[in-house]
């Protein structure tokens, strides 16, 4: 397969950046999107052009490092998949593929397709945890949690923190990310003591970081590699309104 790539190139955070075009040839349909970019990078290096910087690590869809906007869709056209799990067989031979970094004020570009997503870490730091010191935990089976509750919490906890929700949201909102963590901990009995304070602090932090607001368009849910439901956003709204009214 052959493709024409239009890719965002930006040397540093200060650089203005521009779109550049590259052809890639002899791509196997079994390659992942990132492996295709590897091939491009080998090519570029051979030609003496600096290779493209893009974030990646585990390449099996769990670390959340990869962060590519492919033809206007976060992680590309394949549902429930990160870019590292997206294979070239999903594209047509000869396609033009536009690859851009996540775009959000809260995610400044560091280089090419690499952005700074530390704002998401700071949201968790604001309260996305259960305050239990090592050693003070009770016997694990002393706390019974129904299978349904546990599974629901797991659905929310499955978030990989990639930021695709922010990237795809028309308003660059981090509601789905924040809601997933708030819901995971609010659902569990362990999370009850800090429940109200947690949601208030996390939302305040989210707002401070410069993310946009949710307008219920649900683009986040559509691109989430872990298919986290927007019903968790409603849950977070509920948690917040309850926390504010008590």
């Amino acid at each position: 397969m052959n493709f024409r790539l239009k890719i965002w190139r930006q040397r540093s955070a200060e650089d203005r950046g521009r779109m550049a075009e590259y052809p890639v040839k002899d791509v196997s349909p079994d390659m992942s999107f990132l492996e295709m970019l590897d091939v491009l990078n080998e090519d570029l290096t051979q030609k003496g052009e600096e290779p493209l910087a893009f974030e990646h690590d585990c390449r099996e869809g769990i670390c959340g490092a990869c962060s590519l906007m492919i033809n206007g869709i976060a992680h590309g056209p394949e549902r429930a998949a990160t870019a590292c799990q997206l294979h070239m067989r999903h594209f047509k031979d000869g396609d033009t593929l536009t690859v851009e970094p996540w775009r959000a004020k809260a995610f400044p570009v560091l280089r090419d397709l690499v952005v700074d997503r530390s704002a998401l870490d700071r949201i968790v730091q604001a309260g996305g945890f259960i305050s239990v010191n090592t050693g003070s935990a009770p016997e694990a089976n002393g706390l019974l949690i129904s299978k349904e509750t546990s599974e629901k919490a797991m659905e929310a906890a499955a978030c990989i923190g990639c930021g695709a929700c922010v990237a795809s949201c028309k308003n660059a909102s981090a509601m789905l990310f924040t809601a997933a963590k708030v819901s995971h901990l609010a659902l569990l009995p362990q999370g009850q003591p800090e429940r109200a304070a947690r949601v208030k602090k996390m939302i305040a932090r989210m707002d401070e970081e410069g993310f946009g607001n949710c307008t219920n368009q649900y683009e986040c849910e559509a691109v989430c590699p872990k298919e986290i439901s927007v019903s968790f956003i409603a849950r977070m709204n509920r948690e917040y309104l309850k926390a504010q009214s008590t």
């Binding site: 779109m19 028309k170 559509a222």
Partner: peptide, 28 residues
């Protein structure tokens, strides 16, 4: 909110696409 939403993405995407957001939701 709308002003904040615009500010939250100072650099727009070159290639814009939408997966499931309705026309109504995008034109509120």
């Amino acid at each position: 909110l709308a002003v904040e939403n615009r500010r939250a993405r100072p650099t727009p995407y070159v290639f814009k696409d939408t997966v499931q957001a309705t026309l109504a939701s995008r034109t509120m």
